[in-house]
Amino acid sequence: MLTMRRWATRKVQWVGLTALLSAAPVASGADYVGSPQVAEFIAEMTRDYGFAAEQLVELFGQAQRKQVILDAISRPAEKVKPWKDYRPIFLTDARIKRGVDFWREHEEDLARAEKAYGVPAQVIVSIIGVETFYGGNTGNYRVLDALSTLAFDYPPRAPFFRQQLKEFLLLSREEQVDPLTLKGSYAGAMGLPQFMPSSFRAYAVDFDNDGHIDIWGNPTDAIGSVASYFKHHGWKAGLPVVSQADVKGAQADQGLTEGIEPVKNVGQLRALGWSSHDALGDDLRVTAFRLEAAGGPEYWLGLPNFYAITRYNRSVMYAMAVHQLSESLVKARGFK
Rank of each mutant, 00 (worst) to 15 (best):
A113V: 07
T138E: 13
V226M: 10
R173G: 13
L144W: 01
G129L: 12
D101I: 14
Q194W: 10
L170E: 08
R104F: 00
P159K: 08
E108A: 15
D109K: 14
W103T: 08
G136D: 05
A204S: 15
H106V: 02
A227K: 04
L150M: 13
A111H: 13
E175L: 00
D208I: 01
L171G: 07
S228P: 00
V177Q: 00
A187P: 01
A204V: 10
Y203W: 14
V205I: 10
F160Q: 12
M196H: 03
P197A: 10
A189V: 09
S126Q: 05
A189N: 06
F168T: 12
D206C: 07
A222E: 04
T132R: 03
A121C: 02
A222Y: 00
V125Q: 09
P155T: 04
Q176T: 14
L169M: 14
L170H: 06
R157Y: 07
S126M: 05
F195C: 07
L169V: 04
Q163H: 11
R104T: 14
A227D: 03
G118Y: 03
L165I: 10
V123L: 13
K183F: 08
L182D: 00
D109H: 14
V130K: 03
V130F: 04
S198L: 09
T132K: 07
V119N: 13
G211T: 11
A222I: 01
V123D: 04
F133A: 14
Y141E: 15
T132P: 04
G191M: 05
D101V: 15
E175C: 03
R157G: 04
D153P: 01
H106E: 09
P120V: 06
E131V: 08
P155M: 02
A113F: 05
M196P: 05
F230R: 09
R142D: 02
I127G: 07
K115T: 14
I124K: 04
T220F: 00
D109G: 12
L169Q: 07
R142M: 06
L180I: 05
A222H: 01
Q194C: 11
D206I: 06
L165W: 01
G184T: 03
E167C: 01
A111K: 15
P193M: 01
Q164F: 01
R104N: 15
A222Q: 06
R162H: 12
G217W: 08
F160Y: 15
S148G: 10
G135S: 05
Y154T: 06
L150Q: 09
E105V: 11
Q122L: 00
P120M: 03
W103I: 03
F195E: 02
P156H: 07
S126D: 02
D214S: 10
T220G: 12
W216K: 08
P197W: 01
N218W: 02
N137L: 13
R104E: 15
E108K: 15
E114N: 06
F152K: 09
K115E: 15
V125C: 05
S225M: 03
A158S: 15
E175T: 03
F200S: 06
Q163D: 13
A151D: 08
D214L: 05
D101P: 00
